[in-house]
Design a protein around this nucleic acid. Structure first.
Lengths: 158, 158
DNA sequence: GTACATCGTTAGTCTGACTAACGCAACCGG
DNA sequence: CCGGTTGCGTTAGTCAGACTAACGATGTAC
């Protein structure tokens, strides 16, 4: 009975970039999710806080576009952030469809903390690579992602 | 109101390898899922068929280990493959806890087709990279994944 | 002012990853 | 030979991320 208990993954699978991507991404997600949970946070929290910090207050829809989070999911994220006092949601007087989201002082503090945490986690994620290789890795990922997000309309507006 | 409609993603986010990985992986998943659906197949089908082809018949648990698919999920995958006549499930006379899974002639034919389809899809996925860069990309992914799957016990056996 | 677009929101789908627990069978040490 | 442990297949269920559909309220353009 050949290889009955074997954990050897077939060459065909091991070489497929899609598989490597999927598995590594799962691993990375696990890492980040765990690390962020330790400071009572989630991946999406970071994305929203960072966006607010860099571009200032904005509507929920604007935040969706900047972060790539669907506006349906944004509602929940902002609820969580507001609960924790990290952002403030106020109706926009100039456009009553909108909420203006603002980052609070506490939010800025939390963002600094998250940046620290994420730096550490990325150190762990990219541990086996030399600095030059890390740059190259990021560069390759960026080029691929750019290609596919330009090709495909984003966000998907039907 | 600065950047109200902007779709500019903050630097902080754009640089994070974890984010790039997550988004690119989602893109890749979409691509593969669509492409495989066109030939009435799913990602996991390919993994199982390839594993059977390369290492011969095996128990469900062995297949789980080889492919990284949880054995809870393997049940359903094998049901689908059996429905389509691509594999055969037979009780193992030597160990009555086990089912021996065998690939059928039709399964082999389908695998060849899937290999073709996946080659095309990967061409599309990696389109912006030169051949040398594709190799390097795969190599970097492999090294990272190896590192993390060795570090963490796999499969997670509690 | 009527048609169309945008905004926030609710609800719900789908997939992949993963846990818990079950009954059954096999193996191992005493 | 017996009892405990380990492995197997299966069911059921959780969770997060990605994504769709549709809604009412509001704003914009013709």
């Amino acid at each position: 009975m050949p290889d009955e208990g074997g954990i050897t993954t077939p060459e065909r699978l091991r070489r497929r970039a899609s598989r490597l991507l999927a598995h590594l991404s799962a691993q990375s997600d696990r890492l980040m999710t765990q690390g962020l949970a330790a400071v009572d946070s989630r991946r999406w929290h970071y994305a929203v806080l960072a966006s607010l910090q860099e571009y200032g207050p904005g509507s929920q829809a604007a935040l969706s576009r900047r972060t790539g989070i669907y506006r349906s999911d944004m509602v929940g994220v902002l609820n969580e952030l507001a609960e924790r006092g990290l952002v403030e949601r106020a109706p926009d007087p100039d456009d009553r469809r909108r909420n203006v989201i603002t980052i609070t002082a506490q939010g800025r503090r939390q963002l600094r903390r998250l940046d620290q945490v994420l730096d550490d986690l990325h150190e762990e994620l990219l541990a086996p690579l030399l600095p030059a290789e890390r740059d190259q890795f990021v560069q390759l990922l960026t080029r691929l992602l750019d290609h596919h997000t330009r090709q495909t309309p984003w966000p998907p507006v039907p």
